Computed example of a mutant assay.
Amino acid sequence: MRLSAPVFHLKRQAKNLARELGIPLYKALDQIAAREGFTRWSLLAATAPAGLPASELFCRLDPGDLVLIGARPGQGKTLMGLRLAVQAMKAGRRSAFFTLEYTARDVVDRLRAIGVNPTQFDQSFELDHSNAICADYIIERLTLAPNGTLAVIDYLQILDQKRDRPDLTTQVQALRGFARQRGLIIVFISQIDRSYDPSLKPCPDLRDIRLPNPLDLALFDKAVFLSNGAVRFQTINE
């Protein structure tokens, strides 16, 4: 579907609309997307070419890695996570997507938005949207996962939202140890702090990760940041 303007122009229109109507930016983005024929902004954003393709990003990931994908809302971080999962399956590996944010239908819609038939990888893709998702739950579900499996967690900041769950640092440390022991790649989708200003730098970085609770970001090995079509890859631990 052809857009009436480049994505960055449409996003600027959404910002103006949000100010005019006094509504949150994500609602304005969805209104602009609806005008362009999409049900959600994230589906519209999937039509924009990535600055660094998922195929190249996937080649930079190694078994045992903990990876962050950080972006503000509507920039395609969930879609990038799914693209990496698809790349893993194309390479003959298994993938899993754990989400506390989306329904199964939402995930299927996003797979279709990036041109993937959800039944194509039916035997290689595990989708889990249980309310019980936390580090212990993920480890239990992936106990038999083969070496090289790529798992996406949507999203980092919500893992310890329930008070009966361990703190975020404890959960990430557990997942780090598990990933290294089993040779898995674990990708965390992450929120970016509202203070990030794209007019000051084209992409956010580790300093912009939203951390409502303490977390040592040195636990992660690599990071991918998205903003207005730009993609920035960073190696944290070499």
Rank of each mutant, 00 (worst) to 15 (best):
Val86Thr: 11
Glu140Ala: 15
Asn213Leu: 10
Leu84Asp: 03
Asn117Phe: 01
Asp205Ala: 13
Arg60His: 14
Gly81Thr: 01
Gln181Asp: 14
Gly37Asn: 10
Pro118Ala: 05
Arg182Tyr: 11
Val231Ala: 05
Leu82Glu: 02
Ala50Leu: 14
Glu238Asn: 11
Leu52Ala: 03
Ala91Tyr: 08
Leu84Val: 09
Thr170Asn: 08
Asp128Ile: 12
Gln234Asp: 06
Thr143Phe: 13
Leu43Asn: 04
Ile185Gln: 04
Thr99Ile: 09
Ala48Phe: 04
Arg94Asp: 00
Leu211Arg: 14
Asp197Ser: 12
Pro202Ile: 10
Arg163Leu: 13
Ser55Val: 12
Leu175Lys: 01
Ala88Tyr: 00
Leu66Phe: 05
Gly148Ser: 13
Ile69Ser: 01
Gly115Gln: 12
Gln120Pro: 00
Pro212Val: 11
Ile236Pro: 03
Phe97Trp: 04
Leu142Arg: 01
Ile138Glu: 00
His129Tyr: 09
Gln234Trp: 03
Arg180Lys: 15
Glu238Phe: 06
Ser227Lys: 05
Trp41Phe: 15
Gln75Val: 04
Ala34Leu: 13
Ser95Leu: 02
Val108Pro: 02
Ala33Phe: 02
Ser4Trp: 04
Gly76Arg: 01
Thr103Lys: 09
Asp128Ala: 10
Val86Leu: 04
Pro118Ser: 08
Pro214Asp: 11
Thr149Gly: 02
Asp106Val: 11
Leu21Pro: 03
Asp164Ala: 12
Arg72Asp: 07
Tyr137Met: 06
Leu217Arg: 12
Arg110Cys: 03
Arg182Trp: 06
Phe58Trp: 14
Val172Gly: 02
Ala132Thr: 06
His9Arg: 14
Gln87Asp: 14
Ala46Cys: 12
Ile209Glu: 01
Leu206Ala: 08
His9Ile: 13
Phe38Pro: 01
Thr47Arg: 11
Met89Gln: 00
Asp30His: 09
Ala174Ser: 14
Ala46Lys: 02
Lys201Asn: 09
Lys90Ala: 03
Gln157Ala: 11
Leu29His: 08
Asp167Cys: 09
Val67Pro: 02
Pro214Leu: 10
Asp154Tyr: 03
Lys77His: 13
Leu61Glu: 02
Thr235His: 09
Lys222Pro: 04
Phe225Trp: 03
Ala218Leu: 14
Ile138Arg: 01
Leu111Val: 09
Arg2His: 13
Phe220Trp: 07
Gly229Ile: 05
Leu200Ser: 12
Asn213Asp: 12
Gln31Trp: 06
Arg60Trp: 09
Ile209Tyr: 02
Arg112Phe: 07
Ala48Tyr: 03
Met80Ser: 04
Thr78Ile: 07
Ala54Arg: 01
Asn16Ile: 11
